[in-house]
Simulated assay, not measured.
Amino acid sequence: MRSKVWTLCFLLALSFCKDKEYLRIEVEKESGSMVSMRNFSRSSYKETGELEWRLKGDESYIFPKENKTIVYGFAFSQFEKGKSTSMMTGDRGEINHKTKTVILEGKVRLKTNDGKFIETESLTYNLDEKTLSSEVDVLVYSDGTTIRGKGLRADKSINKFTILQPKAVTTGGSNPLKEKP
């Protein structure tokens, strides 16, 4: 009788236990990756322990042989003195670790903490040179002025930028191209 009660208790306990729910990517957007994961997050810290940058993504695919990582739902934040200085987002980001470039595609947005931003469908960020470039249509907003055009060359903080083929300029603030004291 006692063994039947223990067996019943054991079966009841098992019925209430749940396995951990792991999210597996059933239909991969990228084939050939060695590792694929959801809700990807990676951070980098300076030697002083200060947060330098944080990368988040909905899905991530790592290709060790090609030395690249592809991130869907790309969100990259840079920090200085514990505060965010810029946020760059896009539908898809391809990080080439060998050439140290990030190519963003689809609804690309870069916003700095001082209110400047870029919108485009494709943007390349060179990690070594800390420069941005694009060959497609762009919109740049800086200090009350909006510039639309095709092609862009800029520094990461958008303090210095060139629109290769300007199409329209709307002013509303001071001149963003003037020298700052």
Rank of each mutant, 00 (worst) to 15 (best):
W53D: 10
T112F: 08
K150C: 05
Q165S: 15
D128Q: 03
K68I: 09
T112C: 13
P176V: 00
K29W: 01
P64I: 00
E105C: 04
E21N: 08
G106N: 04
G49I: 04
S33W: 02
T145D: 09
L152M: 13
Y141T: 11
L104F: 12
G106D: 12
I103S: 11
E21Q: 06
T89P: 02
K107S: 13
K160D: 15
N96K: 04
S60Q: 12
K4W: 00
V35S: 12
E47V: 03
I118D: 02
K83S: 02
S86T: 05
S133T: 06
L127K: 02
T69K: 09
E30F: 02
K116F: 00
S36L: 13
S15P: 00
D58H: 07
I103L: 15
K116Y: 02
Q165I: 14
R54F: 02
T171I: 12
L110G: 11
C17D: 05
K180I: 08
P176I: 00
L123F: 09
K150L: 12
L177Y: 10
F16G: 11
F74N: 08
I147K: 04
L152A: 14
G115F: 01
V102N: 01
K180Y: 02
Y22E: 10
R153G: 09
I95Y: 12
K100H: 09
W53G: 09
S33Q: 06
F117R: 14
S44D: 14
R2I: 03
F161N: 14
T101E: 14
V108F: 11
